[in-house]
């Protein structure tokens, strides 16, 4: 009896699948893409546990257990890359996170629709500029010889600042470029949340004689609190990842000690020095840390009553 029901439901599924044959045909190239360019490379991470040999390939190279990991964990450059990744991310977050919220709140206070629109357009613009261009502009502005900023400083009698060649100043410049590029774009999500704040709350508070500042502290900020928390958790879950573009393009040999992050390190090790196993092992280590942080952040978000991020 039960068997019969099972068979019937299976038949039903097969009929349904036949009805969907064109849909499956559409999904075929998509799945082929994912298998070839995402899942085969995932199998490729096994070279982190192998003594990779170019001639033997991924499958033919002999296993070597955790040897590669033992090697990279002993390497000073590896720990330096991890430290740099976290330092640059943390400093960027510390500056950009509050600043983005402040700018959003300021934009929200603007009454003139025209002024608001123009300002927003200008603020979003840097987001669409490639990092190559940003790095080129930054070099023109900040280089020690002939950089516009240093020329202005020197005409004011201040000696030139090595924005790009001193380690401390380089970090400053890096954070500045990142904040410049993304601050406007970051406001979008907050502005959307701010438009959802109940108007009647403001009116009630106004009638009760609340000042503008009080309304901000007691109505506006609590209303967008959950967006703020979600964004913060999302940012923190990306702490161990930096896109390769910014540090690679802004960096130079003099500041390598602070500009070499995990992504640039895996690039240099893997592509420039052809140490495939080492580079893959570092990438894998980073992925595992990322997933761990992500799950922890998600758990934390749910524990404090916010939406999860996964």
């Amino acid at each position: 009896m039960q068997n019969k029901g099972k068979r019937k439901s299976m038949q039903h599924t097969l009929v349904k699948m036949w009805n969907y044959k064109w849909i499956y045909l559409m999904l075929l190239p998509v799945m082929a893409y994912y298998v070839v360019f995402k899942y085969i490379p995932m199998y490729g991470v096994t070279i982190a546990f192998k003594d990779y040999n170019v001639f033997k390939g991924v499958l033919g190279s002999p296993w070597c257990g955790l040897e590669v990991f033992q090697k990279i964990f002993k390497n000073h450059n590896f720990w330096q890359a991890i430290r740099n990744t976290m330092v640059l991310n943390l400093l960027t977050l510390l500056v950009s996170f509050p600043l983005t919220i402040i700018v959003s709140l300021m934009l929200n206070e603007v009454m003139s629709a025209k002024f608001k629109k123009i300002t927003q357009s200008v603020l979003y613009l840097p987001h669409f500029i490639s990092w190559v261009v940003v790095a080129g502009i930054a070099t023109n502005l900040f280089s020690q010889q002939g950089g516009t900023v240093n020329q202005i400083l020197s005409s004011a009698g201040i000696s030139p600042i090595p924005f790009l060649s001193d380690k401390g100043w380089w970090i400053f410049t890096y954070v500045l470029c990142n904040v410049w590029k993304e601050i406007g774009w970051g406001t979008i999500i907050y502005l959307a949340a701010l438009t959802g704040v109940d108007e009647s709350l403001y009116e009630a508070a106004y009638l009760d004689g609340a000042t503008k500042f009080q309304r901000l502290i007691y109505i506006t900020i609590p209303s967008i609190k959950s967006v703020i928390v979600t964004m913060l958790i999302l940012q923190i879950s990306k702490m161990m990842t930096i896109g390769l573009d910014a540090p690679l393009l802004l960096g130079n040999k003099k500041v390598m000690g602070v500009s070499e992050v995990i992504s640039t390190y895996t690039y240099r090790l893997g592509i420039e020095s052809a140490k495939y196993s080492d580079s893959t092992a570092i990438g894998l280590f980073q992925s595992v840390i990322n997933i761990t942080i992500l799950f922890a952040a998600d758990k934390f978000a749910k524990a404090i009553g916010e939406d999860g991020i996964i």
């Binding site: 070839v36 490379p41 490729g44 991470v45 070279i47 991924v58 690039y267 893959t280 990438g283």
Partner: peptide
Amino acid sequence: GGGLIPTFLV
């Protein structure tokens, strides 16, 4: 994801 080198090899 597989990361830089495994993707490069594919």
